[in-house]
Amino acid sequence: MATGSDIQDVSMEEQLERKRRPLDTFIVGSLFIAGAISIAITLGILWELGSESLLFFTDEVVSIGSFFTSTEWSPQAGSFGIWPLILGTLLITFIALLVAVPVGLSAAIYLSEYASARVRNFFKPVLEILVGIPTVVFGFFALTFMTPLLRSIFGSTVGFFNVLSAGMVVGLLIVPLISSLAEDAMAAVPNSLRQASYGLGASRLETSLRVVVPAALSGIAAGIVVAMSRAVGETMVVTLAAGASPRNFSLGEDSLFGYILSPFEGAQTMTGYIAITASGDISYDTIDYNSIFAIGLTLFLMTLGLNSLSRRIVKRFRQEYE
């Protein structure tokens, strides 16, 4: 028990000194470590992608030059050119954006500028449910609904595995992403701008398209770029619906729209290659094992580039109001 005399015994300086609390120090230390684990994850990703890719590029059958220039990817035949896989990824991303940008933007404009509270309360949960559905279910949907539908419309020119079906379903998957990011951007536009526009006699449409959308353009563009990065990294839909054979091509010989960019044929993507190669019982330190890390590194850099691009857009073009 502390009595008055106890306190007297302690010198003034000691009383004023900051009390040491080992428990608090320990807890804050642990919390810092929890935060620092995220750095360890990033370092782990970089290290593992880098070191395995290095093994891949130093393999005698692989040359780093042909990896970035060759348009043939046939691991069995020893040709490792990444372009067919990038082509597949870009084709599907392009088709997905073709679907998702008009739908997502319209949804955002309608919900933010037109819809009454009741209409919003109906549509918002629908979009939220769409976000929550696992991508493998979208893959099932692509294969059992979208592909047969396309084949009944366009006939047998549409392959059983084709990038159109995969791209459209990936598009449906990223609609909520675009619409929610664009809606956030438009909600951040101050009401005074809208009121000024109405005051000048503009209609609701003119206000939305000529005042609100331009004012929110940076946020909208950033959202589209994020959605694009999501489409590039999407795995299950493309693995199931776009097939497992890379679209090897030769720029001089193959027709550009008949084959190279044809939406009706299958094309393996970067993510599809990684998933299919790893789903077998893959043995370590083989050329196949190392190759998925080289592809993974390319994929990682692509998505990282897109994500930082979107942040740059927001930072650079953000308009500060009030």
């Binding site: 935060g35 620092a36 995220s38 750095i39 994850i41 990033t42 782990g44 990703i45 593992e48 992608l49 395995e52 994020v226 990065s229 999501r230 590039v232 990294g233 999407e234 795995t235 993510t271 990684i274 998933a275 790893a278 998925i292 890390f293 993974g296 994929l299 990682f300 998505t303 990282l304 994500n307 930082s308 942040r311």
Partner: peptide, 24 residues
């Protein structure tokens, strides 16, 4: 750095985490 890094990690495709899991 930690904060930026967390925001970046949220955008990494899930398959890359799978590769981290496989290798490490």
């Amino acid at each position: 750095l930690i904060q930026t890094n967390i925001n970046n990690l949220a955008g990494v495709p899930s398959i890359i985490y799978g590769m981290l899991g496989l290798a490490v």
